[in-house]
C-alpha cells in the first residue's frame, strides 16, 4: 500500500513537473484513463434444476458506459444503457436488442495498445437469436468454458470494441466472471462455483468526444 502511494506521488510530482514545463499555448488533452467495474452481477444463480443446471431469475443487468452506472430494468427500452449482461451473454443497445445506435466487435489484441479503432472496422449489431455483436459461446467471443472444471475463463488478448447507444466509442476488457475479480481455482467447491459466478469485473475506456481514438 505504502509502495503504491509512493508511486502515485512520483507520478503526480512528475506530471506537475511536465505540465509546468509545457507552454500554456498548447491545449492539453487530459489522457483517458481506464475505469474498472467490480463484481457487476449478471443474473446471478438463484437455484439449481433437478437436472443439475443452475439458473438465475432471467433478468439482464443494464449498464451505462457513458455514466458508469447501472441502469434500471424499467429503462431497458431506452437508449440509457450501452451494455446488458446475463450470464455469459453481453448485449449492445442496437439491432434486435435495443433502440440505440449500439454495436460492437471483438478485437484480438491488447487493451492498452488499441489507440485507434481502424476506420474500416465493422461494428456488428445483435441479431438474436442467430448472432450477437459480442459473439456468444465458448472460445468464440470473450471467454472459454471448461466443462470438466466447470469454469468460465476470459480469453487473453480480447478487446470488446463498443459503440454506445448514442453512437460514441468505448473499449472494454473483461477481467473476471467470478465474484472477487479472479477466476476461481479448479479445486474450488461446486457450491462456490455456483454462487460466485456471473459477477463481471471489467475495465473500460470511454471516449466522450465521439472520435475513434483512445
Amino acid at each position: 500500500m505504502k509502495k503504491a502511494i509512493g508511486k502515485g506521488l512520483v507520478v503526480v510530482v512528475t506530471s506537475i513537473f511536465l505540465f509546468s514545463c509545457s507552454k500554456s499555448t498548447t491545449t492539453v488533452v487530459a489522457p483517458l484513463t481506464a475505469t474498472t467495474v467490480n463484481d457487476l452481477p449478471a443474473d446471478t444463480i438463484i437455484g439449481v434444476t433437478a437436472q443439475g443446471q443452475p439458473y438465475g431469475a432471467g433478468k439482464y443487468t443494464f449498464y451505462s458506459i457513458e455514466k458508469n452506472a447501472i441502469v434500471a430494468n424499467t429503462d431497458s427500452a431506452t437508449t440509457k444503457w450501452d451494455l446488458a449482461f446475463n450470464g455469459t451473454k453481453i448485449l449492445t443497445n442496437g439491432g434486435t436488442s435495443g433502440t440505440g445506435l449500439g454495436g460492437a466487435f471483438v478485437q484480438v489484441g491488447l487493451f492498452d495498445e488499441l489507440k485507434t479503432i481502424s476506420p474500416d472496422s465493422v461494428f456488428k449489431t445483435d441479431n438474436a437469436p442467430a448472432s450477437y455483436a459480442i459473439t456468444y459461446g465458448s472460445g468464440k467471443g470473450w471467454y472459454t468454458y471448461d466443462p470438466i472444471k466447470n469454469l468460465i475463463t476470459p480469453l487473453a488478448g480480447r478487446v470488446l470494441v463498443i459503440k454506445t447507444a448514442s453512437g460514441k466509442y468505448a473499449k472494454v476488457e473483461i477481467i473476471s466472471y467470478y465474484k472477487g475479480g479472479a477466476t476461481l481455482a479448479a479445486t474450488a467447491t461446486d457450491a462456490e462455483k455456483i454462487s460466485k459466478q456471473r459477477y463481471y469485473t471489467f475495465r473500460f475506456i470511454y471516449q466522450p468526444n465521439g472520435t475513434k481514438n483512445f
Binding site: V108, L110, L155, A156, R158, I175, A182
Partner: peptide, 13 residues
C-alpha cells in the same frame, strides 16, 4: 499473436 493474463486479470503478450 499469443496473449496471456496478468495476475490482475488484464492481458499481455
Amino acid at each position: 499473436t499469443v496473449y496471456t493474463k496478468n495476475t490482475n486479470g488484464t492481458s499481455r503478450l
